[in-house]
Amino acid sequence: MVKKVYLYGLVPTSEYEESVLPEKRGFDDEEVIHALPMGEIAAILCKLDSNAYTESFIEEKMNNDLEWLQKKAFHHHEVLMLLNKLYTVIPLSFCTIYNNEDSLITSISSQMDQLTESISRIYGKEEWNVKVFSNDEILKKKVSDSNSTIEAKRKEISSLPPGKQFFEKKKLDQLVERELEKEREQLCVHIHDELTAYAVQADVKKNWDKKATGRKENMSWNSVYLLEQNEVNRFLEEVKIQEQKMGELGLQMEATGPWPAYHFSRLGQMKK
């Protein structure tokens, strides 16, 4: 039976030949992770039992077995972190599986130019992630105390007859809410601009729901930066500075990294 192939990442063959890949069990513990050199690029992969790993099996597991998902996601992460330490790596998305080795070779070979271009783009660089979480109560108080539009509205309301005041106060609450959102967005954009100054490339990603993060605070910003290795310390110092400044406003920052360049090794043009 022809085996399926789980592809973790793509590395320059020259780098692979210089540093040995440590022995490591594959996605299903049965097979060992190994390299398949294809000219300038080598694929880091493991074989999978074709009968066991069908599309419906994986879909079923992903949707109904969180323990499986967690175990396999950590495995994928662990392998890529190892590859990222050893080589310049184009990391593949979780569960990138080919029906057989020939299909993988055909696919990779046809993209060779773009892949080598992508490798040279991320060479010597690191990918870092910054998330901003906001405690809206603190920020709301700040906004409501210091915003001039709100202050003017409040003065206007106090001169109204009591009956009218009730409805106008309700409207004012909505205004505070809108101003809060505006303020939060502005602060996050400011943080992002300050951090982007250190980056070769930067991008903004989707925020995660509270249900997924399991935190009390809302995720207000999720961004990713590609940094020259020698800029990383300065970047992290800036994160610290912003953290202290934004802390009083109820914004918490969380930096993680260095990650394999999942975001920036994407093929094709990327803008800063």
């Binding site: 992460h77 998305s93 979780f94 990138t96 029906n99 696919s107 990603k205 999942y262 093929l267």
Partner: peptide
Amino acid sequence: LDVILDKGVAIKGDLIISIAGVDLVYL
């Protein structure tokens, strides 16, 4: 998950799709 599914989120014109075509088992 935020990073290892990153490519998947913007799957259009993505490495996985474009290099694998119909042969890929993807979600």
